[in-house]
Amino acid sequence: MTAQIQEIPPIPQAAPLEPPVPPKSSNLLPVTFQNDPAPPELIAQGAEALLYRTTYLLPSIPCALKYRPSKPYRHPILDTRLTKHRILSEARVLVKCRKEGVPVPAVYALDEKAGWLMFEWIEGEVVRVRLNEWLRRRKGVEGGIQLGEEYLRALMRRIGSALGRMHGIGIVHGDLTTSNMMLRPSKNEAVSAAGGSETEDQILDGDIVLIDFGLASQGTQDEDRAVDLYVLERAFASTHPRAEPLFSEVLDAYGKSFKGAHIVLKKLEDVRMRGRKRSMLG
């Protein structure tokens, strides 16, 4: 016991730390696309990457361009290592999924040193947006969520079986959230939606397309698969607490989707316990 009683003077202060202002990254686009006559349109800024919509290949083919700019906070060596690894592994995983019939966008082109990957443009919206919109509209109606529960259940089951198919071919996503799944309008729906206004429950219609494989890896370990499900389960609970009770539908459909899925579900219980039992000192 060497320390003295430390005086802690009572000066509360409310100053956010002002970080040293680096020049705003001027090249938020890879060099190849900077002089494109039809400049790519920024769709979203995720945590790691910028997503653009571009017609670089052909005016008639819209594609998605995912660019991973270098991160100023990361050591340059680490940054290069992570970017290269992630672009290549994402492309490999997408190609494998495509080949095996898991619904993902098709890869068109990439340059791992420049940090970009170009793939098929998927129409529709992410599940998070659709689900929240549905929950919002349902909230106003008396007993709304119960009334439309079957639609929600059906969506959850589609999610579960898509995940099962992906795990079944030896792919682990690594970042499953409802922001990383799209609902793509099916062909016949596109016709009906054009004809009349969208009803509430049609919001949840469409085919699940899994996106953002930036943290994905190839592997068949039940541990990794279970952690994948655990990540989604928690993301779900924190993003859509109202829909959480139906998460079991995802797992149920998952369990029926490939041989060995029940072992993963068993493992998931272990992972959950680990998550909650972890000693949390200090």
């Binding site: 002002e18 970080p19 990254s25 991160k71 100023p72 906070y73």
Partner: peptide
């Protein structure tokens, strides 16, 4: 500092 660089971006 690293968090600041990220947030600034």
């Amino acid at each position: 500092e690293m968090m600041g660089l990220m947030a600034n971006d």
